[in-house]
Write a protein that binds this DNA or RNA. Structure first.
Length: 480
RNA sequence: GGUCCCAUCGUCUAGUGGCCUAGGACAUCACCCUCUCAAGGUGGAGGCACGGGUUCGAAUCCCGUUGGGACUGCCA
């Protein structure tokens, strides 16, 4: 039987990096084995679900290239199956009615050795009513084994589980059963999910087998399980939506590339053969195996992601880089755009000019979001960094002298990076300045800051008149 | 508290009893390159949590200790 795996997020927030990792590993397993990757949206928590979250999951998955073969199925459309399964279990005596409130249970068990439900209603023979929930009668003895592809067999004593609620008084079937019924309905053969769900796996095994024993219910083989190690923060805690930067959307917004993001995610809990960690999607698919997945939690290290992103950026052709940078430098001509707009207008932007400077910035940025700041001086009015100006021009007479002689010299120069470089070096030498000191006031006057792409290439591209104008402006400002 | 999972440099990992004087990557430090900033190059520091076994031999197998984490909802 060809494997069928699923990714089953619930749209209760931004698409989380942990979810992205789970989704990716499911996708990789499907692609590696030639199986099917099915998407199911668990949209039954109406209190917390929002349409925009659902759209966010879909667009983030598309961005990452996690294409699904079937779906998205909506859990809300599978409700009838849930109810039918619950009825079958109830009919077979595996579920019983319970009218205990949380408070009543707590009151009864507050002095007991073990907390949780005490099985109070198990033998009361209550009939179902709008006040009763349905609980699963867990075997009091024996053990349940979860066969996990990553961890091996994990054994749980049945006695360590209480009779958990499966159906609410209002008839709604809860997650543990609903999730499993959906997996049966959709024909899932491998359940690949986070390790946080390992403790609930025995419940699902118990119910899966109970369902198989019910009259009139088709027997379905148990799925194989694979529980992926958690993704944690610096404190070694499960990544938190509130405290940690986990929204996949925000990484896209900052200018991380999907290839780099996927590559990095794959490195969390798994590693490619050979020394190279920068590997293509094809290599990932070819080499991926659940058996090789690590058992221990992994820290989501943005620094390493960033480095990898830089490698991907530098490996691009000029055309690819210019295109990739479009949403950040020319959002008006891009179907998708980041939340931050560049500091220039569509009229001020010049694509041909950007294409010329692109190679200079391509090897200097680690994310596409850094591009605008690096090329801002090419487009629109100069934005001057006051501190940089004070340091190299305003408070430095030599800097002013440098500007003055540069204005004179540049005016009649054959305009090229090489000649500008030589001229600046000579001018500086005459003033007793090393090139690094001599170029600083010019850089500041022309680009507004002290860091940026190579100066002389930038001057060449910007053109003589704009450069001279900015040098004069800076000098005038110093003398004002 | 109970159940379960986990344990190699700061971080992600390679390692499945001898090839390990433990390899790589990120981060970090130094140097080189250099018009700023990067990138790149070279080199350095840095780890098998601890204690017992098993074995001729243990990072690798077993037991215990310690430490960390997850779960313990009429959420998903």
């Amino acid at each position: 039987m060809t494997p069928r795996v699923r990714f089953a997020p619930s749209p209760t927030g931004f698409f989380h990096v942990g979810s992205a990792r789970t989704s990716l590993f499911n996708w990789l397993y499907a692609r590696h084995t030639g199986g099917a990757f099915v998407l199911r949206i668990e949209d039954t928590d109406t209190e917390r679900n929002r349409d925009e979250w659902q759209a966010g999951i879909l667009s983030a998955m598309a961005w990452l290239g996690l294409t699904y073969d079937e779906g998205p199925f909506l859990q809300s459309s599978l409700l009838a199956d849930h109810t039918a399964a619950a009825e079958a279990l109830y009919g077979a005596g595996r579920l019983y009615a319970c009218d205990c409130t949380r408070d009543a249970i707590d009151e009864r068990t507050k002095d007991a050795a073990k907390p949780g439900y005490d099985g109070f209603c198990r033998r009361r023979g209550l009939s179902r009513s709008p006040e009763t929930a349905l609980r699963f009668a867990v075997a009091r003895e024996g053990e349940t084994v979860v066969h996990d592809l990553i961890r091996g067999d994990v054994t749980f004593a049945n006695a360590s589980y209480e009779d958990f609620v499966v159906v609410r008084p209002n008839g709604v079937v809860l997650y543990p059963l609903a999730n499993l019924v959906d997996d049966r309905s959709i024909g899932i053969t491998h359940v690949i999910r986070g390790e946080d769900l390992l403790p609930t796996a025995p419940k699902q095994v118990m119910m899966w087998e109970a369902l198989n024993d019910c009259d009139g219910v088709e027997s379905v083989p148990l799925p194989r399980y694979a529980h992926l190690p958690m993704l944690v923060n610096e404190q070694r805690k499960k990544l938190s939506k509130r405290k940690d930067p986990v929204a996949v959307e925000s990484y896209r917004d900052q200018g991380y590339l999907p290839e780099a993001f996927v590559n990095y995610l794959a490195l969390l809990g798994w590693s490619p053969r050979g020394g190279d960690e920068k590997v293509s999607r094809e290599t990932l698919v070819e080499q991926f195996a659940l058996e090789d997945v690590s058992h221990s939690p992994a820290f989501f290290d943005v620094k390493k992601l960033t480095h990898l992103n830089g490698e991907y950026l530098r490996a691009m052709s000029l055309e690819q880089f210019v295109e990739a940078a479009r949403p950040w430098v020319a959002p008006w001509s891009s179907p998708w755009r980041p939340t931050t707009a560049p500091p220039w207008t569509a009229e001020e932007f010049d694509e041909a000019l950007f294409t010329r400077v692109a190679p200079l910035v391509q090897e200097r940025v680690t994310t596409l979001g850094e591009v605008p700041a690096m090329v801002a001086f090419f487009f629109g009015a100069l934005r001057l960094d006051e501190a940089a100006f004070a340091k190299t021009i305003g408070g430095d007479p030599l800097g002013q002298t440098m500007l003055a002689v540069a204005i004179e010299r540049f005016a009649g120069l054959t305009w090229s990076a090489t000649t500008l470089h030589e001229a600046t070096a000579e001018l500086g030498e005459a003033l007793g300045l090393a090139l690094r000191k001599a170029q600083a006031p010019i850089r500041c006057a022309v680009t507004g800051t002290l860091v940026g792409p190579p100066l002389f290439e930038s001057l060449e591209i910007l053109g003589r008149e704009p450069v001279l104008a900015r040098l004069r402006d800076a000098l005038a400002r110093a003398n004002a």
